[in-house]
Simulated assay, not measured.
Amino acid sequence: MDHGRAAAVSEVFRQLGTPTPGGIVLVADHASNAVPADIDLGIPEHLLHEHIALDIGTEAIAEFLAREYTIPAHIAAVSRLVCDLNREETAPGLVPPESDGHPIPGNFGADREARLARFHRPYHTALEQWLEAARPRLILSLHSFTPRLATSEAARPWEVGVLYNADDRAARIAIPLLAAEGLNVGDNLPYSGRDLNYTMNRHAEAPGRPYLGIELRQDLTNTPEAHARWAALLAKIAQRVASALR
């Protein structure tokens, strides 16, 4: 079975590999910086390659995990600046008018309902159906974070963060495992999953599916060597967590 092949593709998501019931699957909400041709965000091109547009490195790591470690993936295919798929439908930042101090002029007065109907709802409907069919033992939720926000003086020294809301079953297992690898691990840092966790709240916490929310620091996720290294480490940790949850 080719777990790296694209099982399903749309404007808003890609699915790689075929889930096995009782296995591990991966979800990457902010993996893409793609902007549809009919949407003009009104920002300089270089901003599409920075953290405000995507979670740097997550797409390549997710592809590596699907291809080399048979961990199927549901991967966003549109930039968070077009529609933030990890936000509630009513959240102000769903169609962000600014991000980390940068105005997004093309989103001023944007039709939120149109963005919801075109991007947000199809993404989550497909993810819900995929997870229902997959019946996974563990969901790996993959994000990455900038070492320093332009709008904050605070450094973010953690190399990896583990995020969770009310369900910390997988987090409690994973945090010491990651620390044992010599990593500086954030426990609900660099921000709290109790504040920002929409996709996992909806698709994991609500139906009772265990999940491991991972945030990787972006200066450690920007080379092919780093992608391979993180994929190997996350596959090992996720497998250990899934086994411990049995």
Rank of each mutant, 00 (worst) to 15 (best):
A60S: 15
L54N: 11
E159H: 04
L233P: 06
H227E: 14
L48M: 15
L26V: 00
N33E: 08
G186D: 03
G208N: 07
T199Q: 10
V160N: 04
A226T: 07
M200P: 11
L127S: 09
L163D: 03
H124D: 05
D195W: 06
E181Y: 04
E50L: 15
D40R: 12
D2V: 01
T223Y: 03
L220I: 03
R118G: 04
Q218C: 03
L26I: 06
L26W: 10
L216T: 02
N33I: 02
R87D: 09
A31G: 14
V25M: 08
E89W: 08
E11V: 11
G193N: 00
P96D: 04
L65F: 07
L54E: 13
N188C: 02
P103F: 02
I56A: 09
A114Q: 12
D38W: 07
H203W: 00
A34M: 12
E88S: 14
D2P: 15
R229H: 12
P97W: 12
E128W: 03
R194T: 05
G4W: 04
V78A: 05
R202D: 03
H102D: 13
H49C: 15
N201Q: 15
F64N: 15
L85C: 08
T18E: 10
G4E: 04
A150F: 15
R115M: 01
R172P: 10
Q129L: 11
S144C: 06
Y123L: 02
H227C: 15
F13D: 10
A232G: 12
R80F: 00
L220A: 13
P147E: 03
G93Y: 01
L178E: 00
E63L: 12
A34Y: 13
V27P: 06
L54V: 13
L81I: 11
T58H: 11
P190I: 01
I24W: 06
G106S: 10
A37E: 15
A28K: 05
R67M: 09
R80H: 08
P103T: 01
L138Y: 07
A91D: 09
L131H: 07
E215Q: 05
L47D: 10
D100T: 11
P92L: 00
L138K: 09
G4N: 01
N222L: 08
A228L: 08
D84W: 00
F13T: 06
I39E: 06
I61Y: 14
Q239L: 01
R80D: 06
A8N: 00
H124K: 05
L212E: 02
A34W: 12
H74N: 12
V241A: 01
P44K: 10
A166P: 13
E68G: 05
A66L: 06
H49K: 13
V9L: 12
D167V: 11
G208Y: 00
L41T: 03
G101S: 07
L54H: 15
R209S: 14
L85Q: 11
A76P: 07
L245G: 01
R137E: 13
I39Q: 03
A117V: 05
H227G: 14
E50V: 09
P44W: 03
G161A: 02
E68T: 09
L81G: 13
V241N: 02
T20R: 14
P97R: 11
P103M: 00
V185I: 05
P190R: 01
E132H: 09
R137C: 10
R80L: 09
T146Y: 04
